[in-house]
Design a protein around this nucleic acid. Structure first.
Length: 888
RNA sequence: GGGCGAUUAGCUCAGUUGGUCAGAGCGCAUGCCUCACAUGCAUGAGGUCACCUGUUCAAAUCAGGUAUCGCCCACCA
């Protein structure tokens, strides 16, 4: 394709018959940036509207989730700007502590190294290099979608200002006594070598075994208590056996002791009501150091916490020597074998249970006692719950409100420390002199208490989500009192996907209320999850799904955007594949070509003193304007409640099937008849459509806006359309609708009877509705029917002529006489042939359905299908026979 | 175990508060390269809106229940 086009020129370009997204996209994005349309004017009097982007990880490249979410946010921000708000969409990226670690460690692994081989400093250097490189990639990909982000305010969670915010927040929490350090059972990922939060653990159904182990009750080895476990290796760390206090089987054992096999430790048998009598034997081994439930039991009963698994998931020196250093898997095998040899394994049952795995690397996590930093959340949760209950913050779709509230009601303290290097290092300092812990806004070299120089900072960093939780205000300048903060906080909308409601949304609400004393946003939109064609989650590593960057390349950003919005309903998910983008691409092309036609219709200047003295033109125009007004209302209302699909579908239908299919077709005819009175209306509606479409298809609409030299200079400066005041005549509109149905009916007859495309047909109408009759006999209306349905003349009649097809409408019957139009003999023969074909098929089916062999062997559904088919064919046969009668 | 969704044409899905809602796109069939567009135009075939029972003058739309699928949460060793 050769389009010799100068990209820097805005007008006088060839108006090719196909919309070429590539020619528009770069050009207009550049143009918007140059004109600073994405940067708010802080001195304007307009109301403010602000969105902060959910910062993509610097590890990632754009995926469909980003494409969807960015599209939706961009639709809203552009919609609000057109509605007259001073808008800010603030972009940025997240350092993604653990995810980035994984990426860099993967690279190191290729060189046979771990992060511990190169040390903290070198590792951080690599991480910053990674950031420099990958941040730009993802931001550029976002730009290719067309996002109206203010890039002058781009933030990164580890920027100096944001790091200052993190530190401020930590210190304030600490000073309020909300941050503490304690031993707790955490999920430990042996691969990432850090604690991870409950939310970062995914459970997988795994077929396994349930081992029933005999714990001898005394040294003679004669009597036992049998416990069932899915993790026999952890028995090395057992410090009790627990039974339900109501369990009659074990009443006499409570308070006694059992002997731990292989180890020889004496274990108290305790009563504990969390023990389920119905599970296993009703007796459970208690391993406080390696199981969350057992941990609680251990604390309650003051049991020993015996750590037998270390940070690398290997058996520690707390276990008998022969197991030390084994992996958990090896230890399991060894323990089971030894128990078997000693006759202490009662039985093994198959059992499927859920194994916790690291959400990042899929390694099996080990519950493990360790010393971590925690944030007390109860006090923080209370106002965060209230603000949602009192609807200061609203979730869309509304059902997510309950999900949020249920979670918040059962909130546990948040483990905020991670044994990682990339991230915000915990601002706690340990003094080796006086053993004090000093938490400080500034780095310190000397103990404030004892002035010892022997101080060292905590090695850990904060959970990535700690900084994310501050994002809505840290990006606007907090803790400083900035103008941005004053003008744009609270922000208006947060749009995100369902899986980070707890990880992120809840925590932003809590910290927003804590530090800003105001909610971080008023509306939370939770969008659908984009699934692959198979219904599975898209996954690059599994090769399932599509790449939005490729789709933009092939179909254009506008086409992709429109399609995504068109599919975005309140569903929890939708399936998506490449073919679907054709919908948007084709629509973009349709708009483009409609524009070409309109440009042509405009070229001829309006003739003075239009010949349309009657109202026919007005009615058609009225019809269009009514539909247009409805469209404005529906789209505005839909976008206000984030019903993206409703808005997109309505625009699609109005533009394509009403404006193009009918109004433009009629305009062509009017133009031929020197009636150019449609021009101002067409122009106004088309211009309005461009604005309505702009949030969905920014590039195409900007391109056309310039080609039509509309004002103001950019469509981004335009105003959202308002319904046009019209002289509404309901009866005229129904008459017009009847006319449309009549035209469709005549076309239908033509197609059914295979009337030559160039042959005109007469049409006889029969109606008692005088007004309708007058309308249809109006010369201008007749002209439309002549042209659009290829009709030669319209006459009235009271009776149906022989050999004619009939069209039945609400207030009207119309007849199309077929004499002379079709070759009756030929048509007769065609129908006869068709009847013969059907007869033959019917015979086949009848034969089949009387064949006992078939009836006994075929699937019932197949037989049923054949029966249904027979019925349908019979129907068709009858109809054809009737048609044959008409032709006689 | 709890919560939340889904079940509508061959496929993917729309269907705000119950009464022109039985729809769209794709696919299919037929005819058209008609001077905006074949990424197009015209016409058509295809569905007891999962199932049962209620409420109502009226239900795809509301209530109760059943079945299947999906998502989320939860300490069943």
């Amino acid at each position: 394709m050769e389009l010799m086009e100068n990209l820097s020129e805005k007008s006088n370009q060839p108006f090719a018959s196909r919309y070429e997204p590539k020619l528009a996209e770069k050009k207009w994005y550049q143009y918007w940036l140059e004109h600073k349309f994405f940067t708010p004017d802080l001195s304007s009097k307009k109301p403010r509207y602000c969105i902060v982007i959910p910062p993509p990880n610097i590890t990632g490249v754009l995926h469909m989730g980003h494409a969807l979410n960015s599209t939706l946010q961009d639709i809203i921000i552009r919609f609000k700007k057109l509605q007259g708000y001073e808008t800010l969409w603030l972009p940025g990226t997240d350092h993604a502590s653990i995810a980035t670690h994984n990426q860099i460690e993967k690279r190191l692994a290729q060189q046979g190294k771990t992060r511990f081989d190169i040390g903290r400093e070198a590792f951080l250097k690599l991480a910053w290099e990674w950031k420099e490189k990958h941040e730009q990639i993802i931001l550029d990909q976002l730009k290719s979608i067309g996002v109206a982000c203010d890039w002058s305010r781009t933030r990164f969670t580890m920027d100096a200002q944001l790091s200052k915010a993190v530190r401020e927040a930590f210190v304030r929490y600490y000073e309020k006594g909300l941050i503490y350090k304690d031993y707790y059972i955490v999920n430990w990922c042996p691969r990432c070598h850090t604690a991870i939060s409950d939310l970062e653990v995914k459970y997988k159904e795994t077929p396994s075994k349930l081992w029933f182990i005999k714990y001898p009750l005394n040294a003679d080895g004669k009597s036992y208590i049998v416990v069932a476990t899915t993790r026999p290796e952890t028995m090395l760390g057992d410090s009790a056996v627990a039974v339900n206090p109501l369990d009659e089987r074990y009443q006499d054992l409570i308070g006694k002791t059992a002997i731990l096999p292989l180890v020889g430790r004496e274990l108290p048998i305790i009563a504990e009501d969390v023990v389920d009598m119905k599970f296993g034997t009703g007796a459970v081994k208690v391993t406080p150091a390696h199981d969350p439930v057992d941990f609680e039991i251990g604390k309650k009963h003051n049991l020993a916490f015996i750590k037998v698994i270390d940070e690398d998931a290997k058996i520690t020196t707390n276990a008998p020597e022969k197991y030390q250093g084994l992996t958990t898997q090896q230890a399991r095998e060894a323990v089971v074998k030894d128990l078997q040899n000693q006759g202490l394994l009662e039985k093994i049952e198959d059992y499927t249970h859920r194994v916790g795995t690291c959400v990042r690397c899929e390694t099996t996590v080990e519950p493990m006692v360790s010393l971590q930093w925690f944030l007390k959340t109860q006090g923080l949760a209370k106002p965060a719950i209230e603000k949602v209950i009192d609807k200061t913050i609203k979730f869309y779709p509304e059902r997510w409100t309950k999900v949020y509230l249920d979670w918040m009601a059962n909130l546990k303290d948040w483990c905020i420390s991670r044994q990682l290097w990339w991230g915000h290092r915990i601002p706690a300092f340990y003094c080796d002199g006086c053993q004090e812990i000093i938490v400080s806004r500034e780095d310190i070299n000397e103990c404030v208490k004892c002035h010892s120089k022997n101080i060292r900072q905590d090695e850990d960093v904060l959970d990535t989500w700690f900084s994310s939780a501050l994002w809505p205000f840290s990006t606007l300048g907090w803790p400083d009192e900035t103008e941005d903060l004053k003008q744009f906080y609270p922000t208006n909308l947060l749009s995100t996907d369902p899986d980070i409601i707890f990880l992120w949304v809840a925590r932003m609400i809590m910290s927003g209320l804590e530090f800003m004393n105001a909610v971080p946003f008023y509306q939370v939109y939770i969008h659908s999850t984009v699934l692959a064609e198979t219904g599975e989650r898209m996954s690059r590593s599994k090769g399932i799904g599509v790449d939005p960057v490729v789709l933009i390349e092939k179909y254009g950003a506008d086409g992709l955007r429109f399609t995504l919005a068109y599919l975005e309903t309140e569903s929890q998910s939708y399936r998506f594949w490449e073919k679907k983008v054709e919908l948007g691409r084709n629509f973009a092309n349709k708009i483009w070509n409609a524009a070409r036609l309109i440009a042509g219709l405009n070229q001829q200047n309006k003739i003075e003193n239009s010949t349309t003295a009657d109202q026919s033109g007005l009615i058609i125009d009225n019809w269009l304007l009514i539909k247009y007004n409805q469209t404005i209302e529906v789209v505005t209302n839909a976008l206000d409640r984030f019903a993206f699909s409703v808005a997109a579908q309505h625009l699609y239908t109005f533009f394509w099937h009403e404006l193009c299919d009918w109004y433009l077709e009629i305009c062509k005819i009017r133009q031929k008849n020197n009636d150019l009175s449609f021009q101002p209306i067409l122009n106004e509606v088309f211009q309005g459509c461009l604005v309505l479409l702009h949030p969905f298809m920014p590039f195409l609409t900007e391109e056309l806006w310039h080609r039509f030299n509309y004002l103001p200079e950019s469509i981004m400066q335009a105003q959202w359309p308002q319904p046009i005041a019209i002289n509404y005549q309901p009866s005229a509109i129904t008459n017009f609708e009847t006319m449309r149905e009549l035209i469709v009916g005549i076309r239908n007859v033509r197609a059914e009877m295979r009337i030559d495309i160039n042959k005109k047909v007469p049409c006889l109408i029969n109606t008692s509705n005088r007004e309708l009759l007058n309308f249809l006999l109006n010369p201008d209306i007749q002209m439309l029917i002549y042209e659009l349905a290829k009709v030669s003349e319209i006459k009235t009649t009271q009776t149906r002529p022989a050999q004619s097809s009939v069209i039945v409408l609400k207030d009207l019957e119309a007849y199309v006489p077929l004499t002379g139009l079709i070759d009756f003999n030929k048509e007769y023969q065609r129908i006869v042939n068709e009847i013969e074909d059907i007869d033959q098929e019917l015979r086949r089916i009848n034969h089949l359905l009387t064949d006992n062999n078939f009836l006994s062997k075929a699937k019932p559904q197949v037989i049923e299908r054949e029966r249904e088919r027979r019925e349908k064919l019979q129907d068709k046969l009858n109809r054809l026979k009737l048609a044959l009668e008409t032709l006689k």
